[in-house]
């Protein structure tokens, strides 16, 4: 039952996207997000759709997986869409009672909704194709220069990877505790808010006890192996660029220039 939670979930597959260096994917995601805000027209979004479809096909992750993340923001999408639709001033094309919809409103709402959907799908491809470890490794290495101005880059990366590592452990633990309490007749689903909150006590107490115990064990295990921070620490799998990463950087830059070009060109000829 807890297995359905998909935060930071990795989908194992053998694809070009999976095998890319995490730094490339981080850079790519960043450029993709900027590009989404540059795209401000139908033509721009057609271009982004082509790029995104290409990535989705290459990643070999089932499309249904990426859409899952959208469920969480459905309400936000609807609200943002409606506000844009009704509250954008302009020449009304459609009026009823006190509300009027302008051409600019339709355009604004459509762009807004598509932008958010693409944002979620694009970033979820990143987490679906990169293991949490790769991700933190990539972040640590990309942020390395910041340590010169006193940012504890290694510590942040270590905290992130521990936190990410604990998500599946604690989900599994929650699942087991829920089952153990359900076997004693506990009921987590029925009743009002107060009853439901009370029903959580038999779940939360063992969960907290176990989380603290695990944290303690981990700290001991790290100390026993003489962990003392990032200074001079080597990696078992150091990140290194390969030819395909270079090509990927090139493609990302070309696509980025592509979206700018599309937007400029469209404005010049006055296309939608």
């Amino acid at each position: 039952m807890m297995r359905e939670i998909t935060i930071g979930q990795y989908y194992p597959a053998k694809s070009v996207i999976h095998s890319l260096d995490p730094r490339v994917k981080l850079f790519g995601t960043l450029m993709y997000i900027i590009a989404l805000f540059i795209a401000n027209s139908v033509s721009g979004f057609v271009f982004m759709t082509i790029v995104l479809s290409g990535i989705i096909i290459m990643s070999k992750v089932p499309f249904g997986y990426m859409v899952k993340g959208l469920k969480a923001i459905v309400v936000l999408l609807v609200v943002a869409g409606l506000f844009n639709l009704f509250l954008t001033p302009g020449i009304p094309v459609f009026t009823f009672w006190k509300f009027s919809i302008s051409m600019a409103g339709i355009r604004g709402a459509a762009l807004m909704v598509f932008r958010m959907i693409y944002l979620i799908i694009g970033t979820s491809i990143m987490s679906l194709t990169t293991t949490p470890n790769q991700l933190t490794d990539g972040l640590e290495k990309s942020m390395r220069p910041l340590s010169a101005i006193g940012v504890p880059v290694h510590e942040i990366a270590m905290m992130m990877s521990i936190a990410l590592r604990f998500i599946p452990i604690l989900t599994e633990e929650t699942d087991k505790i829920m089952k153990a309490q359900m076997a004693r007749g506990a009921d987590f689903d029925s009743g009002g808010i107060i009853r439901k909150a009370k029903a959580l006590v038999p779940l939360l107490v063992p969960l907290f006890v176990s989380a603290f115990r695990r944290a303690n064990d981990l700290a001991l295990a790290m100390e026993a192996r003489c962990y003392n921070g990032g200074e001079g620490r080597t990696k078992m799998k150091p990140l290194s660029y390969e030819t395909r990463d270079g090509i990927a950087y090139l493609i990302i830059l070309i696509a980025f220039i592509g979206i700018i070009a599309v937007e400029i060109f469209r404005k010049k000829i006055g296309f939608i």
Binding site: E173, I177, A180, A183, V201, P202, P206, S210
Partner: peptide, 13 residues
Amino acid sequence: VGMVFQYPEHQLF
């Protein structure tokens, strides 16, 4: 059908 799980820590609260 009563069931006792492997770790008592999972049910004592």
